[in-house]
């Protein structure tokens, strides 16, 4: 496991958090985003490294993911029902 990759994952999580902070429920939005687009291995790597270097919202979101408290879809981009929509 390379330090470079984990650093990048932490950076990505923070970036997602910064862009979703205006969402109604930012922690849920971040957790939902990560679960929808990351592979389990990427998620495990970030959980394993702990909260070092993570923004508060990202820390909470990762804690949720680690506990398996996966939120329901928070945006249409992560909602399988929309993915199945007739308009793509």
């Amino acid at each position: 496991m390379s330090g470079h990759t984990v650093e990048k994952l932490a950076y990505m999580a923070n970036q997602i958090a910064r862009n979703l902070v205006h969402d109604d429920k930012p922690v849920m939005a971040v957790a939902d985003h990560i679960v929808s687009f990351w592979t389990p291995r990427m998620i495990d790597m970030l959980i394993a490294q702990g909260s070092a270097g993570l923004d508060p919202v990202a820390v909470e979101a990762m804690a949720r993911v680690a506990d398996g408290r996966i939120p329901p879809p928070q945006t249409r981009a992560t909602d399988p029902a929309v993915h199945g929509s007739d308009a793509g």
Binding site: F37, T39, T78, P80, H83, G84, G88
Partner: peptide
Amino acid sequence: GYRHVSDKATRDLFEAEWGVKIDPEP
């Protein structure tokens, strides 16, 4: 058609057509 792999109904459709299991994780 932009359907998430975690969606079971969609996976069922492909699994039936292709005769294999599809990984539900991205």
